[in-house]
C-alpha cells in the first residue's frame, strides 16, 4: 500500500492506494499515530485507489477513530469503491464513520 499525505486547511488528507490488509495496515496505523502527535484533529482518508480491505484494515480504521475521538478529533472517509461498501455496512462502520462520495464533500463535511 502507498500513502500520500496532504493538507487542505487544517484537514490532514491521507490518500491511500492499494491493499489495506494484514501486510500493509501497520503503515496506516503508524501514519495515524504521527498525525495525532502533530496535533491534527481533522483527518480524512481517501479510499479512491484502495482496491482491497480486510478485517485487519478495518480494525486500523476503528483504532484511528477511537484515538482521534479521545483527542476531540474527527475522522471521515471518502471515495470507497461501490463493491466494498457492503463490507463497511456489515461491519457497522456506516453507523460510526461519516462517509462521503467525493474528497471535496468530505472536506466540506468538517465545516
Amino acid at each position: 500500500m502507498e500513502l500520500v499525505e496532504k493538507l487542505n486547511g487544517d484537514v490532514a488528507i491521507l490518500v491511500l492506494n492499494g491493499r489495506l490488509d494484514s501486510n500493509t495496515s501497520k503503515i496506516l496505523e503508524d501514519k495515524v499515530m504521527d498525525i495525532l502527535r502533530q496535533g491534527s484533529k481533522k483527518v480524512l482518508m481517501d479510499f479512491q485507489d484502495v482496491d482491497y480491505i480486510n478485517s485487519t484494515g478495518l480494525r486500523v480504521l476503528l483504532l484511528a477513530l477511537q484515538q482521534l475521538k479521545k483527542n476531540q478529533g474527527r475522522l471521515v472517509l471518502c471515495c470507497i469503491k461501490d463493491y466494498m461498501k457492503e463490507v463497511f455496512e456489515i461491519s457497522g462502520y456506516t453507523e460510526i464513520f461519516p462517509i462521503f462520495a467525493t474528497q471535496d464533500e468530505a472536506v466540506q463535511g468538517f465545516a
Partner: peptide, 9 residues
C-alpha cells in the same frame, strides 16, 4: 465508538 471492541470482525 469508544466502547466498540477491536476484533471478532
Amino acid at each position: 465508538v469508544e466502547d466498540r471492541a477491536i476484533g471478532g470482525l
